[in-house]
Design a protein around this nucleic acid. Structure first.
Lengths: 186, 186
DNA sequence: GCCATAACTGACTATATAGTCAGTTAAGAG
DNA sequence: CTCTTAACTGACTATATAGTCAGTTATGGC
């Protein structure tokens, strides 16, 4: 009947507040005030405050995966890694707020479960893909090289998401490209 | 007069519970039960639950800094980085529980302030030191190379602290050494 | 042995806030 | 125009838990 506008408003408000103040420091009432709706509406859509967070994560993940660019598979290892770096940096920049929230949740024992399995599945899939690149190119220790590459990417992500604009992400791109090349040599 | 045993017991119990359950999911009463003391004792030593956490962090940081191994300054960049990697990996293994707690806190807006400045100071100091190594060796872009090195180390730390024993930290050491060498070349 | 005093106790209170629910509003179908 | 029903409201309750404090215990100095 009436068009439903509250749910999205709640997601938007929750996203902003959870990122800036944290989940526990944010009250349900604050979210509703920020969203411009009543408190009762939250419990019309969600079982609990935690279910609101879970819904927000699920919604955003789904939205992102539908836009996820496919990685080119052909070419040399170097080309594959280079493409990966490009995609990864774009992803970081455009989805920084969500990614930071996800990283925060992943580090919190209380809320880890909400993001753990899907996140682990994606991380494992990416690792396997990179391992295969190294394997097909006949490199020694493909697993450890792939792990090293993922550590580098996540290290950059960690530093960027901790400081945002204060981190020279663009300047790091050539460094990443060099590191990728070096991982292929020897 | 009476020997004070409760404070340390509280720190130990809080450390264990905060790491396994998280700060917010852990009640003051749980801590006192785990420590085998009464609830009132917490407020004899600390202003609040948060002050207990802050005391725990300060205490552990101090203890660690007094044992902190000094890094050798002489030698080539490669030797310096190699020494750094050694120290870093030992530090990671021996202090993993505290480091994980610190990383968790650093990602939480609610509690970030407790660890932010000292942590930032140390990170900045380390970065400056590594920048100087590259600078003195006459490398181009010493800042970005140093940043890259720190990103690699922190990426490894992130992966290790997220999974502990399931991460092949020892197998990554040669990879790290190679990466350090590669950062010096060109 | 006994005092002074710091370490410690545990029943109690205060309050913040998650969650409820009976009622109201408004959009669209007929 | 009006009826249906989903979207929405906001005053209310229930409770978990941080924090209090008057009282008790044990230890080392004298």
């Amino acid at each position: 009947m009436r068009p439903q506008k509250g749910k999205q408003k709640l997601y938007d408000a929750a996203m902003r507040l959870f990122e800036s103040q944290g989940y526990f420091a944010t009250t349900v009432e604050q979210i509703t005030v920020e969203a411009g709706v009543s408190k009762g509406l939250v419990y019309n859509y969600f079982e609990s405050k935690e279910a609101l967070l879970a819904g927000l994560i699920a919604e955003t993940t789904e939205k992102m995966e539908s836009v996820a660019g496919s990685l080119s598979t052909g070419g040399s290892v170097e080309e594959s890694l280079s493409g990966f770096i490009d995609q990864f940096l774009n992803y970081l920049k455009t989805e920084k707020h969500f990614l930071k929230l996800q990283l925060t949740l992943l580090m919190m024992p209380e809320l880890r479960a909400i993001v753990a399995e899907p996140q682990k599945a994606r991380a494992d899939a990416l690792l396997k893909m990179v391992i295969n690149w190294f394997k097909q190119a006949g490199h020694t220790e493909p697993k450890n090289r792939a792990r090293m590459f993922m550590a580098i990417m996540d290290g950059i992500a960690l530093h960027y998401l901790s400081t945002y604009e204060r981190y020279p992400l663009n300047a790091m791109k050539p460094q990443l490209m060099k590191a990728a090349r070096d991982l292929c040599s020897d």
